[in-house]
Every structure is written in structure tokens, then in C-alpha cells.
Design a protein around this nucleic acid. Structure first.
Lengths: 247, 247
DNA sequence: ACAATAGTGTCTATTAGACAATATGCG
DNA sequence: CGCATATTGTCTAATAGACACTATTGT
């Protein structure tokens, strides 16, 4: 190892600057479908394209904190705090993923109940919840990040109670089934689903209340539940076998 | 938003430098137990403490490439390429996790069959495979990263064929069972395990060969298998229920 | 011979899933 | 009234796990 290698290996300050950003894949269920929060970029690069909300981390700011800030700031949705579940997704650092400079992005995955329409934030020309099955072209490598987020979300519904994060404070079993059907994109058997949910310890707990009225097309009032204290579902709710995804 | 906020939000160059490192949690099975590759730091900070192999990313270098390089470089183990499975674990960016400067670390998780002893690399005073249940104090927040890696590894054995990455090119069902027992830390029923493995499509495929001899304490020769083409195990191999881990 | 291990057989409790039945409430 | 929906019941096939058995090989 010569001196320049030594320096290159040991002192990061000889490098061109590396910027660190957070990007947020925020998912919700709206209009009967799964939607992701996108902002339209107001500035170069990729001005005019849609992108995930995100931006540079600030000094002294922890990563999850930066993700929450970007989500709130770029959409005008504040006070999200306790209604949104947020977790780290993955990091992306391919050298040319941003034309300006070396940018490493830490992505976060957020699950939200149906929220108000976002307001375009400070550096966004526009912001909207967009259906994940009818997406515009995305800036940078955000299509890849989003695909990764969707895959993660679908998987986590199986073995965690995360589906409740898409529902309101209280919900019916049918509403919960709607979450699974929407995220997984498959119809589920109402009766078996109902029994299965109630058989998983700690998934949901009864509020003792029922809905005010039956469904719009009739039917009895449904019992209301809130999220239970389980962090893992045991046994898990497995998706119908997907032979093609195994290999 | 005033001008300084504007600048802080838009131009990363006004920030103090952020350094990006990769750290690798490399796991193997040795001496009947699960072990992790640690290096003893030769330099400040935390000189003398054990740490995960890792270091700053280099210009033009992709993140997985950096992880593979650090693993090879800091241990003297080269040509690992095709024998080691490596995947991204998580990222850590708490502001004060490194006393020198703001450092964001992307961690990688590696699974390896039993490899030769590492050689201390260029900036490591020492390097060794150390049992995960008898660890020394670790530098930085590496204990947290390692704990996260172990948790991930244990979980992935359930629904992916990753256990084969701990075995050699070919292996017996008993050896594979040993991997599960070691990583999970629980004994498994030999007969039921055997049947279960063979029932999962694409997990293992027979080589048609058997071991050269029986076990050291007797027994018939075992059939040899190699990893199959499945990427997911279906149905999964679930760990015995862990009531305490659910909530 | 004896002990250890590979591999297979069998039985039972549990579970997933198909299907049915009943009751409630909307139009 | 007629239909959609919530909830519960029943049956069957598949599975996990306990246990047992046979065959093979090292000491």
C-alpha cells in the first residue's frame, strides 16, 4: 500500500464530498387502491418529474427524524407523529444515481391511514397520493426504491400487525381484510379471514363497540377493534402460495 | 423559511462533511458455534477494541462492492467472491456514533462456510472469528449492528435457503440441521427435519453421491445434496414458537 | 456386540381453506 | 321483500411434531 492508498483508505476528507439524503416511501390506502406519496420536483435535476419526498440530512439530526421531517415538510402534512408508522427500508449508493454528486440515500417506509391531501411543500411544485399501479416516470432511481418498499410492505403484512397502521384508530375486521386485499392484490375469504384474525393473540382487541350503522349496501353492524399489543403475528397470515415467486 | 434555512435545505455543501462507511457482519459456523468476524482496531478512536470490519467508501465504488472489499481487505481473505453470500442489513446515522465526525454507516450481512483464519489486515492489529455468545466489548455502536445482524440471520433461515450458505458446496441433511440448530440455538428433531427439508421444493437437490464414510461415532453414509434453485422456502421452516418474542 | 446416526413409517393434534348456515340491516 | 354483509359452524386435506422402527457403519 502506497501513501495515496493509505490516505484514501484512512482519511475521508481527501474524497469528493458524499451527500446523504433520506427518501420516504409513504403508503396509504385511498379510493380502493394502494397509493404512494409523490412530489413533483420544482428544481433540477429532474425538474418536473415526480419523486419520493426526501432531502439532505441536517447536522445533528438522526436519520428517522430526518425522514419524518421530510415527510411533513414536503407535503404540508404536519402533526403526523403518532398516526404514521415509519421504519427504515434500505440504502442506495450507486455512484451515478444522482448527476450532481455522490449521493447515498437512506430510504424509509411509512404506513399511514387515509390522510388529507398533501400540500405542495417548499421545494415541490406539486404533491399527491398516486396509485401504485398507474405511476408516472420517477426521478433518480426512485422506481427501484418504491418497488422495494412495496415488496417489503407486502411481506410485512404477513408476520407483523402492520395492516392496522393503514386503518384508523378503530376498525372492523372487514376493513382490515380490505387492507390485506388491497396491498396483496388478491381477494380473501371473509369467513376464514375473520376467524384467523381473532385467533392470532394480540393482533386486535375488541373495543366493545360496533359501527353506527350497517354497510352502505346492508348487513349487520360490525364489531369494532383496535390494534393489539403483538409485535409479531404468530401464527403468521400467509399469502396464497405464489409458485412463480419462489425461484 | 429564511435564507439560512433555505440554504440548509437545499445545498448540502454548506454542511460539515458527512462520511459514509460500510461495516460488515460476517457470520460463519465454527467449533460448533456461530461466530462473527471481528478485527481489533489499530488506530483511534477505540484503538484496541474489537470492531466489525469496515471502512470508508471510495469514489466511484458501489456499496456492495465496498462491503466485499472491506471484508477481503481487512482480513487477508481474498477470492471469497463466490463462496460468500452478502446482503444489505441496515444503516446507522445517529449523530454522535463516531466521535470524529458525522458518520453514516451502511451495514452488510455476510454468510460464509467455514473459512480459513483471517489475517490481520492493513489497519487491523488482529482479526478473528469470535463466538457470538462470548463477545468482547465492541467499538462504536457495533454491538447494536451485530445484534441486528443476528436477528436478521435467524429470521432469514426460516423463509430463505440461506442456511446452505453456511455449508460447503455439498452437504448432508444432518449438516444442514446443524446449521439451523446452531443459528437458532435450539435442538431440532432429526427425523422430522429430514422429511421437511426434502419436502420443500427447490431447497436442496441430490448429488447422487454419499459421504465417504459414516459419522465419527458410526452410522450409515449420508446422501449428499447441493443448494437448489429456490429463492424462498415454501412452506417455510418455522422456529418453535417463541411466546416471549411476540409482544 | 454395541452405540450412533440416516432415513422412513405412523399416529395425532392443529391448521388452512372450502363451503354452508344464520342473523342483521339497508334499499 | 330481497340482497349484501357479519359472524359462526362444519367438514376435509395438509401439515407439524411426537414417537418408533430399520438399516448401516465406526469403535
Amino acid at each position: 500500500m502506497n501513501e495515496s492508498e493509505f490516505l484514501a483508505g484512512y482519511d475521508p476528507r481527501v474524497y469528493p464530498a458524499v451527500a446523504v439524503t433520506v427518501d420516504v416511501v409513504a403508503l396509504t390506502i385511498r379510493g380502493g387502491g394502494l397509493r404512494v406519496l409523490l412530489i413533483r420536483r420544482g428544481e433540477q435535476p429532474h425538474a418536473g418529474l415526480w419523486a419520493l419526498p426526501g432531502g439532505f440530512i441536517r447536522p445533528g439530526e438522526d436519520l428517522p427524524q430526518a425522514a419524518a421531517r421530510e415527510l411533513a415538510e414536503e407535503t404540508g402534512l404536519s402533526n403526523l407523529g403518532d398516526r404514521v408508522h415509519i421504519e427504515q427500508l434500505a440504502s442506495y449508493g450507486t455512484p451515478d444515481r444522482d448527476p450532481r454528486m455522490r449521493v447515498v440515500s437512506i430510504s424509509y417506509l411509512a404506513f399511514a391511514p387515509d390522510l388529507p391531501d398533501p400540500l405542495a411543500g417548499t421545494d415541490a411544485a406539486d404533491a399527491a397520493w398516486q396509485p401504485v399501479d398507474k405511476l408516472p416516470e420517477l426521478a433518480f432511481d426512485h422506481d427501484r426504491i418504491l418497488a422495494h418498499g412495496l415488496e417489503r410492505a407486502r411481506g410485512k403484512l404477513e408476520y407483523t400487525p402492520l395492516a392496522t397502521a393503514f386503518a384508523g384508530e378503530t376498525f372492523t375486521i372487514s376493513e382490515l381484510r380490505g387492507v390485506y386485499e388491497t396491498v396483496w392484490g388478491v381477494p380473501l375469504h371473509a369467513g376464514n379471514f375473520h376467524r384467523k384474525i381473532l385467533s392470532v393473540p394480540g393482533f386486535v382487541e375488541s373495543t366493545g363497540e360496533t359501527t353506527e350503522s350497517g354497510g352502505v349496501r346492508g348487513g349487520p353492524r360490525a364489531k369494532l377493534y383496535r390494534a393489539g399489543d403483538a409485535r409479531l403475528l404468530h401464527p403468521a397470515l400467509l399469502r396464497p402460495a405464489r409458485e412463480e415467486q419462489i425461484r
